[in-house]
Every structure is written in C-alpha cells, then in structure tokens.
C-alpha cells in the first residue's frame, strides 16, 4: 500500500513536472522525436534489405542435371541420395519434357528447334531442383550432389551466389550497426538534454535530500518523467512510420523497380516497428533521466 502510494505520487509528480517545465520538456521531446524518426527510417531500410536478402537467398536453387540414359530406378536412387544429404530443404523433379515445354512456350525459335526431336533424341536432361537450408553451405552441398552416380552436371550460379551472400552479410551488419549506434547516440543526446532541464531543478533535489528522501525517492519521479518524455516523443515517429510506410508501399505497389525487389508487407511490420520505437523512446528517456539525475545524488 505504502509502495503504491509512493509510486502513484511519483507518477503524479512526474506528469505535473512535464507540464510545469513545459519549454524544457519540449526540448527533450523534440530531441527524442527527431532521433526516433531517423531510427525509424534506418529500421525500415534495414528490415527491407534483410527481407530482400532472405527472399533472394531462398530463391537460390541447385540444379542437378541427370545423365541422358538414366533409368527411372536410377533416378529414384539419385533422389534418395540427395534426400540423405544434410542441408537439404526440398528436392523437386523436373523432367526433360517439362523443360522442353517451358522452353517452347518461351520462344518461337526454341519451339522450331525442339519440335524436330523426339523424346529419345532430345539433348535436354532430366533435372532435380534442390533448395538448401543454409545458403552459406551451398558450395559443399553442390559438390556432394555432383558425386552421386547418375548426376552429370551441377549448377547453382557459382561465384555469383557467394559474392551476393557476402554483400548481403555486410549490408546486414552495417544496417544493424547503424540502428544500434543511433540508439546509443540518442540515449546520450537525450541524457544531455534532460541534464539541462534537471540543472534548473537541483534546488528541488537538494531539498528532497535534506528532508530525508532516499536516492530512489529522488530518482523515481525523474525516471517516470523520462518515461513520459519517451512516450510523448515517440508519438510523431510512430504516426509517421505507420502512415509513411503504408503510403510508400501503396505508391510503389509493394515493389521497387522490379518484382524482384519486394517491400515488406505493411501489416504487421509497421506495428512491430512502432512498438520498437515506443520501446526505444521509453527506455532511452528513462536512461537519460537516470543518468542526468545521478550527478546530483552524490552526497
């Protein structure tokens, strides 16, 4: 009960203080707002780059071309052997007839050329399309598939895939690093802004100490104040994220330049991002206040 009274008093005082020192609160709120907008932009960018990278990685397929004279029993054996390997996500069979049909549909020249051959004469090979679990192991897996009897050639875009993976890896690390760095910078920026606001209230802190307030008694209202500043500061970034991203998504029809680069679906993405912004705002506000008030608590 006593704790509840102290807490409710802390919250009441913090709330009062935000409005009583409104011009200073506004400085902190604007600081939080501006930095959270930058955080929001980098989160949206980094999540979309990640999403794009994951989609591309998922699309990478190993194509195992089988020997021309392969029997259906042997084909089954190859399928079993591939299934037995580690790192296999899925295996799909694509017969030479299917491939030929696809090719004939795609252009008139192919149609003319391929229609001359009977099924036995066709130089097109049956294939297995293999998707892997871990894209970084794709080279090893392809190597193992190549050794299986009945497999003549294995292709997965060697060289290009490895390069792409390493580029994506770097981009991911950079974007995550940027978000973390931004959050840290925001925290210290806000700590400094709040420090200025608290400087004008050090007399209040001195008196609190004098009448026997413990450090927690003194710190709590300021930490709650930081929490309120964080909430108030994240309102505009959250609205901007929700409306901004949905508008962007609709404007581009969910893709940029080509269907290959897809944007993330706004739902639930914008809500998660908003939740993250609120959390960052609140934590950073509380941390800032805590750091700023700590200075005045030395006895």
């Amino acid at each position: 009960m006593k704790l509840f009274r102290i807490l409710s008093r802390n919250i009441r005082d913090a709330f009062k203080s935000v409005f009583r020192n409104f011009s200073l609160s506004l400085a902190s709120i604007s600081c939080i707002t501006i930095t959270l907008i930058v955080v929001a932009i980098s989160v949206i960018l980094s999540m979309n780059v990640n999403n794009f990278a994951t989609l591309v990685e998922k699309d990478v397929t190993i194509v195992a071309f089988l020997d021309l004279e392969i029997t259906s029993d042997q084909r089954q054996q190859v399928s079993d052997s591939i299934h037995h390997l580690d790192n296999i996500e899925s295996v799909t069979f694509k017969s030479k007839t299917e491939i030929a049909n696809e090719m004939m549909e795609s252009s008139e020249e192919f149609k003319a050329a391929l229609s001359k051959w009977t099924e036995e004469e066709s130089p097109i090979q049956d294939t297995y399309l293999v998707k892997v679990k871990d894209i970084e192991q794709i080279g090893d897996t392809a190597e193992k598939i190549k050794k299986i009897d009945g497999v003549s050639i294995v292709k997965y875009g060697e060289g290009m895939v490895e390069q792409m993976i390493s580029v994506f890896d770097i981009v991911r690390k950079i974007t995550i690093g940027m978000v973390i760095a931004l959050i840290i910078v925001t925290a210290f920026l806000i700590a400094n802004t709040i420090k200025i606001t608290i400087f004008s209230r050090r007399r209040e802190i001195e008196i609190m100490r004098l009448v026997g307030a413990s450090n927690i008694n003194i710190k709590n209202p300021f930490i709650f104040e930081g929490l309120f500043l964080g909430i108030l500061g994240s309102i505009i970034p959250i609205i901007a994220t929700i409306y901004g991203y949905v508008t962007l998504y609709n404007h581009f029809g969910g893709q940029i330049f080509s269907p290959f680069i897809r944007l993330m679906d706004p739902q639930p993405f914008v809500y998660y991002t908003s939740g993250f912004l609120l959390l960052v705002g609140v934590l950073v506000g509380m941390f800032g206040s805590w750091r700023a008030v700590r200075k005045y608590l030395k006895i």
Binding site: R203, E204, E206, I207, R209, L210, V211, G212, A213, S214, N215, N217, I299
Partner: peptide, 18 residues
C-alpha cells in the same frame, strides 16, 4: 544517509523553500 535525515530537521538562513 536518508535514514538519519528523517530523524533530523534542518532549517537554513535562506529558508530553502520550493
């Protein structure tokens, strides 16, 4: 320190009021 402060009242020359 707050524990001892709660048992002591202090009055200053400059009042120290909010």
């Amino acid at each position: 320190v707050y524990k001892i402060r709660r048992k002591i009242g202090v009055v200053f020359q400059d009042f120290q009021l909010l």
